[in-house]
């Protein structure tokens, strides 16, 4: 029996690292959903099983080296989400680890996003969509963003969009606005049925939000 246990343990020791990727090595799965089939567990961090659809690789790498706060109030399933609590910062990685993690994360995809145009908005259209962002759809109540003067404003229960243009892929933004249930079963954000033209302009507007534009 003792021999059997030793053999089993040895087997585990030798087999686990051989199949494990860097995401597993770093224990990312203890807070983040990494597998599509993992629908039962409640995670305390954002889902990453579609990271390859959602993020821009360069941003991902920089985030892993020098994490920034995206959700000032925590993630939606975090028990401390309401009311606000002080959250521990995300762990930072070495450049080498960040490269490996970003590469693996970019390989996690669940769908083929519909390609959208990333053509910049004219000044007039940007003003129009910014107005809709605040008034027609009320996005600013839960999301921080930048106004036309480059000032940060908005609520904190949703992820900050101040750096959305560097963080997110335009195709994913459009997909999320159109069919968020593809990615997350239960959200705290209202569903919107935007006309295709509005969806296109909204996506392009969100992609103009970049932290280097803060004044």
């Amino acid at each position: 029996m003792k021999t059997l246990t030793t053999l089993l343990l040895c087997g585990l020791l030798f087999s686990a690292p051989a199949n494990a990727g860097v995401l597993e090595d770093k224990n990312c799965g203890s807070c983040h959903r990494l597998k599509v089939e993992d629908t039962e567990t409640i995670f305390t961090g954002p889902d990453l099983h579609y990271a390859g659809n959602k993020f821009q690789p360069e941003w991902l790498k920089q985030f892993l080296i020098n994490p920034e706060v995206i959700r000032p109030a925590g993630f939606v399933t975090d028990p401390g989400f309401l009311p606000k609590t002080d959250l521990p910062p995300h762990a930072s990685s070495s450049e080498e680890d960040a490269n490996a993690l970003a590469k693996e994360l970019m390989g996690l995809k669940i769908s083929t996003s519909t390609p959208v145009t990333s053509e910049p908005l004219t000044k007039g259209l940007r003003a129009k969509i910014k107005y809709q962002f605040e008034r027609t759809f009320g996005c600013i109540s839960c999301h921080q963003s930048l106004n036309l003067a480059g000032k940060v404003r908005g609520g904190i229960s949703g992820p900050s969009l101040v750096n959305a243009g560097n963080r997110l892929q335009a195709d994913w933004v459009s997909d999320w606005l159109k069919a968020p249930e593809t990615y997350t079963a239960k959200r705290r954000m209202p569903n919107y049925k935007m006309e295709p033209a509005t969806l296109d302009q909204f996506t392009r507007f969100l992609m103009t939000l970049k932290k280097e534009n803060i004044k």
Partner: peptide, 23 residues
């Protein structure tokens, strides 16, 4: 109410949700 409304209206509905001071 807790899931959606309390983000702005507060967990007890007193208008003091986490977004309140930013509006």
């Amino acid at each position: 109410y807790q899931w959606y409304c309390s983000q702005c209206h507060g967990v007890k509905g007193k208008g003091d949700g986490i977004n309140a001071k930013f509006l």
